[in-house]
Design a binder for these strands. Structure first.
Lengths: 124, 124
DNA sequence: AGCGATACCGAAAAATTTTTCGGTATCGCT
DNA sequence: AGCGATACCGAAAAATTTTTCGGTATCGCT
C-alpha cells in the first residue's frame, strides 16, 4: 500500500508510547479519528473537515488506520461512489486521547504560539 | 538551533490537535517527557532510559522542548559537566497525556502487533 | 461532449525528521 | 598520555512522511 510497512528502523513495540505513536502519531491521524468520531464518515466529508491536508494523505492515512484495525470501511457498489468509514472498538479507545490532545492544544495554544514566536526571533 | 523552526508548510495553530502534535508529537518527545517525569533529569540518564534513540536526537528534541517551555535546563558550571532538566508547568500538563499514550499502547500492543504482522503478510 | 463530484492509486518531488559521524571541551582515573 | 564519562554541536546522509501531479472510473447534470 501507501509506502512500505517494513521500516528500516524498527519500532520497539514493547514500549506503550511507541505503540501508540505508531498507530496514531502521524500528522493527520488524530484529526481523521476525530472527524470520524464526530460523524464525518466519508472521505470527502473528512477532507472538508481537514482541508489543510491533501486528499491524498487522508487517503493514505485512512488506509493505514484501516489496516491497523482502527477503522472499518464499507464501500457501496457502483453508482455514485460511496465509502463509509467507522471507528472500530480499537478506534473508539483512541478517541478520549484525541479529545485530550485537542483540549490540551486549545488550552495552551496561546502560550505555544508565543514561544514559537520567541524562538523564531532569537534566530532573527 | 537544531533544524529550522521556520517550516515551509505552516501548521494551523488554531487546531488544538495540531498544536499538541507540534509540541510533543515527535518520535521521542513523549518518551523524554516521561523519563524526566519519572526522575531521570540528566541527558545521560534520559539516554539510558531511551537507548534506542541516539544521544543526538534526544539532544535536539530536548532543546526543542526547552524552547517551547516544556522543560527547563539548569547547567552546572565547569567541573564534571552537569545539566538537569525539569518539567515546567506546561510540561507537567502533558504528563497525563503521555501516561495515557503509554497505557493505551500497553493495552493494545498485542492487537497492534498482530495487525502489523497481517499487513506485512498481505504484501508478502 | 464536457464538467464536477465521488473514491482511489502510483510515482516523483519536496519537506521533515532522525541517524550517523566527527568534533569540541573538561574532569577523573590509571 | 590515554581512556571514558559528561554535555553539546554542525553537517551530511538516510529514513520517513507528506505533498503534488497526473491518472482511472462512474454517475448526474447541463
Amino acid at each position: 500500500m501507501y509506502g512500505k510497512k517494513t521500516k528500516k528502523i524498527k519500532d520497539d513495540l514493547d514500549c506503550g508510547i511507541t505503540v501508540a505513536m505508531r498507530v496514531f502519531g502521524a500528522k493527520w491521524k488524530p484529526c481523521i479519528i476525530d472527524a470520524v468520531y464526530r460523524g464525518y464518515n466519508r472521505p470527502s466529508e473528512i477532507h472538508r473537515q481537514v482541508p489543510e491536508a491533501s486528499a491524498r494523505v487522508l487517503d493514505i492515512q485512512l488506509s493505514e488506520l484501516l489496516e491497523l484495525g482502527v477503522v472499518t470501511r464499507e464501500t457501496g457498489e457502483g453508482f455514485p461512489l460511496y465509502s463509509v468509514y467507522q471507528l472500530t472498538e480499537l478506534g473508539e479507545s483512541i478517541v478520549p486521547i484525541v479529545r485530550q490532545l485537542n483540549k490540551w492544544g486549545d488550552t495552551y495554544k496561546e502560550q505555544v504560539r508565543e514561544k514559537l514566536a520567541e524562538a523564531y526571533m532569537d534566530m532573527e
